[in-house]
């Protein structure tokens, strides 16, 4: 039986919101129903728990229940990324280049950390930890870039991109 890693980025958890949000509950229910654990790179965890915006008033997403999800066991933090692994480094570089091209930005304005999902996917596949990876992100350029990067490496046919907003909408039958 093949093993699959489900890697998600910050956009999926921001879009699913707080514990009061139907989308968060649908995501949790789906994870439990399918016995699925979403993996987030360390960088994504930092983005989700960033308090630098600290203000007296806060967005409903300012305190996301990511630690609760980790405690419940359906989200796990993955890291550190092994940048000395050439497949990891190449997948991240390729993804950054793809994002720069699709978004019409200079390559040097895309941070390597923006491709943390690609690095995580390459590392899990290369070390044989899993046979397949599914990435969840609302950032189409990033999702497509990861698929292109992993497919161009010698790890073809083992990566899938699911657009985060549509995924949550399908889980709840409720558009944003």
């Amino acid at each position: 039986m093949s093993s699959v890693a489900h890697i998600a980025d910050a956009s999926l958890f921001i879009a699913s919101g707080s514990v009061q949000n139907a989308k968060f509950n649908a995501l949790r229910t789906e994870a439990r129903r399918t016995d699925r654990r979403f993996i987030i790179p360390e960088r994504v965890y930092e983005e989700l728990t960033d308090r630098s915006d600290g203000d007296e008033t806060e967005y409903t997403t300012s305190t996301l229940p990511i630690d609760v999800a980790i405690e419940d066991g359906w989200v796990a933090v993955f890291g550190p990324l092994d940048y000395t692994n050439p497949r990891v480094a190449t997948a991240m570089d390729d993804t950054c280049r793809y994002i720069a091209r699709e978004t019409d930005r200079q390559e040097n304005t895309i941070e390597k950390a923006d491709a943390a999902l690609a690095g995580c996917a390459a590392q899990l596949l290369d070390t044989g930890a899993v046979d397949r990876v599914v990435v969840y992100t609302a950032d189409i350029a990033a999702g497509e870039g990861i698929v292109a990067a992993i497919t161009h490496s010698d790890l073809p046919d083992r990566i899938e991109f699911i657009e985060g907003f549509s995924y949550l909408e399908n889980l709840t039958a409720d558009p944003f």
Binding site: A10, E47, T60, A138, F165
Partner: peptide, 13 residues
């Protein structure tokens, strides 16, 4: 922050 950008992108979708 990524949180603020992601939040408003979600709301404006």
């Amino acid at each position: 922050s990524v949180l603020e950008a992601g939040t408003i992108l979600t709301e404006l979708r």
